[in-house]
């Protein structure tokens, strides 16, 4: 990796929000490719961040700041990415289920999935079940739906949303993956309500989304 790319990677990893944009501009001016900046430096950095998070070397604050640093870089990089014909690897919608107003975990998951190269549409908190289904109907390019619930008391709303998504999938035959997560959620609960995947933290969620995408492409 070139020195310029390495500098961006290190800055994103360490959450240097203020310097990332400048470093990306420098790298572009020096002739580095937009796709390389995104994939090798930024997505590479977020993958390191995710790994450190899973190993308890860093925690939520450091991860949030790294994701924010990446966002700053992507803002500068966006026009060059468009010119280079760079496409996101997949499209995912995410939201906290009806009745639940928590967004810290959901935002973190959205950032990490974005950090893995996805286009993420965040529907926000307290998202009615119909909103998930309507958004899918409006946009046939969405491949994955991610549902979040923080409260044990809103787990039933997650089941409602999963039921509706499964019904929609059955009715239309659309290829789609439903992923769930949140503090009280377990793999057993995900299986019980008929979700396709569960992950226990935001770093694993990014890997889970990539796996779900690969499964979709493999026709699973």
């Amino acid at each position: 990796m070139s020195e310029k790319l390495q500098a961006i990677k290190t800055a994103v990893e360490n959450g240097k929000v203020k310097v990332v944009a400048g470093l990306v501009e420098e790298a572009l001016a020096a002739g580095e490719g937009a796709k390389e900046i995104l994939n090798e430096a930024m997505i590479g950095a977020m993958s390191v961040v995710g790994e450190k998070f899973k190993n308890n070397e860093i925690f939520v604050p450091e991860m949030l700041i790294a994701a924010r640093a990446m966002k700053k870089g992507v803002e500068v990089l966006a026009p060059a990415l468009k010119d280079a014909g760079s496409e996101p690897i997949g499209k995912l919608i995410i939201g906290t289920v009806a009745g639940d107003l928590h967004d810290i975990g959901k935002n973190l998951v959205a950032m990490m999935i974005e950090g893995a190269g996805f286009e993420v549409l965040d529907l926000g908190v307290d998202v009615p079940t119909e909103k998930f289904v309507d958004t899918l109907k409006e946009d046939p390019s969405i491949q994955i739906v991610a549902l979040s619930a923080l409260l044990t008391t809103t787990m039933p709303a997650m089941k409602d949303a999963t039921d509706a998504l499964n019904a929609y999938r059955k009715e239309t035959g659309r290829k789609l993956k439903i992923l769930v997560g949140g503090a009280p959620i377990t793999q057993a609960y995900a299986d019980e309500i008929g979700a396709d995947g569960y992950s226990e933290d935001a770093a694993s969620a990014a890997e889970l989304a990539k796996k779900a995408l690969a499964d979709l492409k493999a026709g699973k």
């Binding site: 929000v17 939520v60 604050p61 949030l64 700041i65 924010r68 107003l101 928590h102 810290i104």
Partner: peptide, 8 residues
């Protein structure tokens, strides 16, 4: 349920 600066 909301975070402090600089991460929030």
């Amino acid at each position: 349920g909301r975070l402090l600066e600089p991460y929030g």
